[in-house]
Nucleic acid binder design. Structure first.
Ligand SMILES: [Zn+2]
Ligand SMILES: [Zn+2]
Ligand SMILES: [Zn+2]
Ligand SMILES: [Zn+2]
Lengths: 132, 132
DNA sequence: ATCGCACACGTTATAGCATAACGCAATTGA
DNA sequence: TCAATTGCGTTATGCTATAACGTGTGCGAT
């Protein structure tokens, strides 16, 4: 999915996520955009829907939050499953890819004739700084 | 985490999940237990909290639902990460373990000195029957 | 031009998921 | 017996997400 020019709302939501130092909930994004005219959750969710579609934002299922893609130059959709390590103390998120993991999971799904559409890998724990 | 004898509420919730043919939301469980005296979400959530702790129930983060463990005899906590394939059409869930995936992810976290506490792997898509 | 369509947007209302805070009762172990 | 723990019930609240309706704008087809 290639990213066309963003609309005003999409650009605002994306900018908030880019500037944030960690994942944000949709309602936190809403609060940060009230000064820019945002009044309702749908304005955020509709923008997020497109940004997710374009692959420039990821959703963290285990914490109901959203982050800007850490690899803006590449196309995250193109090199397999995206995995996340989420620090439960400081909120920092690391995004990575592992082809070997992708292949193992794909082998499993092929064996079961399961047609995978979207795969979530999220590791919650403590980052190096917080584990000390 | 070994499972002690379940309390009445825990047993009721577990029974509902065992009998279900797919994952259930907490509120669905609540509805199915109204005849047994359940009136409030907390009765379900408190039971689920314990069942998750004992490892006899799993939470599916990507769909906010719960399933009974598919390997009741074994101890799911003891052999690594649990992964799920969830059919978005019929709701059927397959639970599996893959040590190779575990090792790859553990290698990554070791490399980053990230202390993993809980890892989620969920594949959404279509099961063999539904993909036809 | 103007019609029809697609799309973004704004607003209100509602649905769905989860926890806080209080109080009570039963159990247990010092 | 007393204190601590645990489970339980209830009410209220907060957080997450979508339904439904209407408006305006751009753009190609007629
Ligand atoms: Zn990415
Ligand atoms: Zn941290
Ligand atoms: Zn299990
Ligand atoms: Zn299916």
């Amino acid at each position: 999915m290639n990213a066309p020019a963003l609309t005003k709302n999409q650009a605002l939501v994306f900018e908030v996520l880019e500037k944030a130092d960690g994942p944000l909930s949709a309602y936190t994004i809403l609060d940060r955009l009230r000064d820019h005219g945002f009044r309702a959750p749908l304005q955020v969710y509709r923008a997020l829907e497109k940004l997710l579609e374009y692959g420039v934002v990821h959703r963290l299922e285990s914490i109901n939050a959203f982050v800007a893609c850490a690899h803006p130059d590449q196309n995250c959709h193109s090199h397999g499953i995206v995995a996340f390590a989420i620090c439960e103390s400081c909120g920092h998120v690391m995004e990575f890819h592992d082809h070997e993991v992708d292949h193992r999971l794909m082998d499993w799904t092929r064996g079961k004739k399961f047609k995978a559409e979207k795969t979530t890998i999220e590791i919650r724990g403590l980052c190096e700084a917080c584990a000390a």
